[in-house]
Write a protein that binds this DNA or RNA. Structure first.
Lengths: 197, 197
DNA sequence: TTAACGTTACGATACGTAACGTAATATAAC
DNA sequence: GTTATATTACGTTACGTATCGTAACGTTAA
């Protein structure tokens, strides 16, 4: 009996050691948080991961791609805390979490990925789809729950509201002209989300 | 009669040829707009400007510094159009000009400089002081004139208002998830600047 | 047999600097 | 005023280094 449409084409030969991939990503992530994107070189990753350089190239085409993979692996969209009862509180908790991440060393990684995305189209696409879009989706969902609950007045333009919330956060992260605090998030929300009228 | 405190200590030796500096900056600017920051190498600048590499190093310490100098030379703060009579119209014109710049090839330069600032402290400082701060100052001044004229209600936090205006613009520039149009600016203003009550 | 991985090696690009010669300008000496 | 001299700008050439991306080949695990 022969399989006519195998969903998994049966991998042949020696399988990839999962520790290899993990070691590369872990090394890239560590380098990224410490020294920023410029310190994430194939050479440095290879040494830190105790893997040969050609092996890294067998997984990813260049250093920024490894950095992006490492970044996306560890940093998902900020998840809404489950505990808050009201969607408004959940929204606030979600953005507080994002602000915390931006203020922490992880914020440097985010900034580095934004920077990397400016010069590499592929990275930009991945970053938009896997990070930007996910964060917007998560926040949009909570906003709509707030609207459904009549906790806030429905905004005229939902996408504009998202730009008004995320824009200033990224702006401060990248320009560094002012700190990113939970209080700042609260200010943003107060300004952007019209309280229930 | 001897000058006791000469304001210009009389430069000695061969003066710098102004065309050298101009050629370097022009070349850097062209490279920056086309290929982004990674294409702005000392090597490429030297060839395009028809200047030797050591000469470039005599002016600036590294390639990103040249790029920043070229950027700041050509892209100042958006100036308020003189024609509009009311400060509110001037504010709108100023931000329209910024949006136009962000949407044009010059926008790529701005994005490239933001990216560069993430990995080079010196550049970050220059960029904050010479570009970010200047734009904020210009807009803040117009906002205050609007307030003085009672054209708009005074915002609770002026700096927050500036973040709400500039943040989304940079956010769209850097993420590229939506276009930067004059209509977007108008939407921003409507949302952020409470109309006269 | 097939593919993963290491080792070694190679050419290419860009870096930043040094050394040296020449050109252009100021100041001082005559 | 003309001439010497110091000083600086710029080009040319060269050097050593870092990192890149790839190729070749052997070894190991399925």
């Amino acid at each position: 009996m022969s399989r006519q449409a195998p969903s998994q084409p049966a991998p042949r030969g020696r399988p990839r050691d999962p520790r290899t991939r993990a070691a590369i990503l872990a090394a890239a992530r560590a380098l990224l948080e410490r020294g920023g994107l410029t310190s994430v070189t194939i050479e440095a990753i290879a040494q830190k991961a105790e893997v040969s350089r050609p092996t890294i190239y067998r997984y990813w085409p260049n250093a920024p791609a490894v950095a992006m993979a490492a970044f996306l692996e560890t940093t998902g969209a900020a998840e809404a805390a489950k505990s808050p009862r009201t969607p408004l509180a959940a929204l606030r908790a979600q953005l507080h979490a994002l602000a915390d991440a931006f203020a922490a060393p992880a914020g440097r990684s985010v900034a580095a990925m934004v920077a990397a995305a400016q010069s590499e189209t592929e990275l930009a696409k991945a970053f938009r789809n896997e990070f930007i879009a996910r964060n917007r989706d998560a926040t949009r969902a909570l906003l709509e729950r707030c609207i459904a609950d009549k906790a806030i007045a429905p905004p005229e333009d939902m996408e504009l509201s998202l730009d008004l919330i995320f824009g200033p956060l990224f702006y401060r992260l990248l320009m560094g002209h002012a700190p990113i605090t939970r209080g700042f998030v609260d200010q943003l929300l107060a300004a952007v989300i019209p309280a229930r009228d």
